[in-house]
Simulated scan of single mutants.
Amino acid sequence: MSKQSLSQRKAAAYLGVSPSTLGAYVRAGRAPAHVNLHGIRRFEVADLDAWLNARRGGG
Score class of each variant (00 low, 15 high):
His38Pro: 00
Ser5Trp: 12
Glu44Cys: 07
His38Lys: 10
Ala31Gly: 13
Gly57Phe: 03
His38Thr: 12
Leu52His: 01
Val26Ala: 13
Trp51Val: 08
Gly59Ile: 07
Asn53Ile: 01
Thr21Pro: 02
Lys3Cys: 00
Arg27Phe: 02
Ala11Asn: 01
Arg30Trp: 09
Ala50Lys: 05
His34Lys: 06
Arg27Val: 10
Arg30Gln: 14
Asp47Gln: 11
Ala28Met: 13
Val45Thr: 12
Ser2Pro: 09
Ala12Asn: 01
Gly29Lys: 10
Arg41Asp: 08
Ala31Met: 09
Lys10Arg: 11
Pro32Glu: 00
Arg30Phe: 07
Leu48Glu: 03
Thr21Ser: 09
Ser2Ile: 03
Met1Ile: 14
Gly58Asp: 07
Arg56Cys: 02
Leu15Lys: 08
Gly58Cys: 00
Val35Asn: 05
Ala50Gly: 02
Val17Pro: 03
Val17Asp: 00
Ala50Asp: 06
Val17Phe: 08
Tyr14Pro: 09
Leu22Asn: 05
Leu15Cys: 11
Leu37Lys: 15
Asn53His: 11
Gly29Leu: 09
Ala12Lys: 01
His34Phe: 13
Ser18Tyr: 10
Tyr14Phe: 15
Gly59Asp: 07
His34Ser: 13
Ala31Val: 07
Ala12Gln: 03
Gly16Val: 10
Gln4Ser: 14
Ala12Gly: 02
Thr21Glu: 06
Arg9Glu: 12
Gly23Pro: 03
Leu52Ser: 08
Leu15Val: 05
Ala11Val: 00
Leu6His: 06
Ala54Arg: 14
Ser2Thr: 07
Val17Glu: 04
Leu22Tyr: 10
Ala24Gln: 12
Val17Lys: 05
Thr21Leu: 14
Arg55Asn: 15
His38Met: 01
Gly59Glu: 08
Gly58Tyr: 07
Tyr14Val: 04
His38Ile: 08
Asp47Thr: 03
Ser20Ile: 12
Tyr25Gln: 08
Ser7Gln: 06
Asn36Met: 13
Ala28Asp: 13
Arg9Phe: 09
Trp51Phe: 15
Leu22His: 06
Ser18Cys: 11
Gly57Asp: 04
Gly59Met: 08
Leu6Met: 13
Ala13Trp: 07
Gly58Ile: 01
Gly23Arg: 09
Asn53Glu: 14
Ser5Ile: 09
Arg9Lys: 13
Val17Trp: 08
Met1Ser: 12
Gly57Ile: 02
Leu6Asn: 04
Arg27Cys: 08
Gly57Ser: 01
Val45Met: 07
Gly58Pro: 00
Thr21Trp: 12
Leu6Thr: 01
